[in-house]
């Protein structure tokens, strides 16, 4: 059976530490753009930790939500791309073929999650910062759209390793960089076609929902809402 990669994000675990954000930069050769460009709205973060305030002081709450490409099954970014640079893979990933991208930015407009980032300039790594670049991931030139790939290079490496060792990819064998680094194990990655995988089990959680589910994009990322605490004696309490 082909794989169908998905992710679960447990918002009850996520601490907002942003280890995932830096891990993604390190893994995927995402350049920093510098203060001036950042001020002009050109910073690139394939995964970001959104935060929303609720209420007013003193009864105020803050909610974190890591947002990355939702790898929509019904991805609005795909049909609009005139060159098939944004397209679907047989494993359900929304692939971004940099070589094909001519930079219309249409896909980014169509993406309801605003997870696509445009290269306004050629990336710069001031030497010798370039020595850190991951040779498994290509760097993107000016004019090209980029976004979270679910660390496809790691998926492929995992599949190759499994094949070399003569077994199927096992649950947990493959971790995208953000998942690997997630300090609270809030991010769980795996094969949704395997009903017993951790991500499948979590995706079935009653706390689970999809981001902007009503848009019908059919994301493969499931968010598990924050739980509440119930006092001792409260029958709902676990």
């Amino acid at each position: 059976m082909p794989h169908r990669w998905g992710m679960a994000v447990d918002l009850d675990r996520c601490t907002g530490c942003e280890a995932c954000v830096v891990a993604c930069h390190a893994e995927n050769n995402i350049p920093t753009v510098g203060a001036d460009e950042a001020a002009r709205g050109r910073a690139k973060h394939w995964i970001r930790v959104e935060r929303y305030w609720e209420g007013e002081f003193p009864d105020v709450r803050l909610k974190f939500r890591p947002v990355l490409c939702q790898q929509c099954d019904n991805a609005p970014c795909e049909p609009v791309c005139p060159t098939y640079a944004s397209s679907h893979t047989s494993e359900g990933l929304n692939a971004q073929v940099y070589n094909r991208c001519i930079g219309t930015r249409y896909c980014a407009n169509a993406c309801s999650y605003d997870v696509r980032f445009f290269n306004f300039f050629n990336p710069v790594w001031e030497k010798p910062l370039h020595l850190q670049l991951n040779p498994d991931v290509s760097v993107r030139e000016q004019g090209v759209m980029e976004k979270c790939t679910f660390c496809v290079q790691r998926i492929n490496a995992g599949k190759i390793a499994a094949k070399a060792e003569g077994h199927e990819v096992r649950d947990g064998d493959i971790s995208p960089a953000c998942v690997q680094s997630c300090t609270a194990n809030a991010l769980v990655f795996g094969d949704l076609n395997d009903p017993d995988s951790a991500v499948s089990r979590l995706s079935r959680s009653p706390r689970g929902s999809k981001l902007l589910e009503d848009l019908g994009t059919e994301p493969k990322v499931t968010y598990l809402e924050r739980d509440a605490w119930h006092d001792a004696g409260d029958p709902r309490r676990g």
């Binding site: 907002g16 942003e18 954000v21 830096v22 920093t32 510098g34 950042a38 970001r48 930790v49 974190f64």
Partner: peptide, 12 residues
Amino acid sequence: PWLQELPDVIST
């Protein structure tokens, strides 16, 4: 630079 460009999780 990665940390300079990391949006602070609260203030962003």
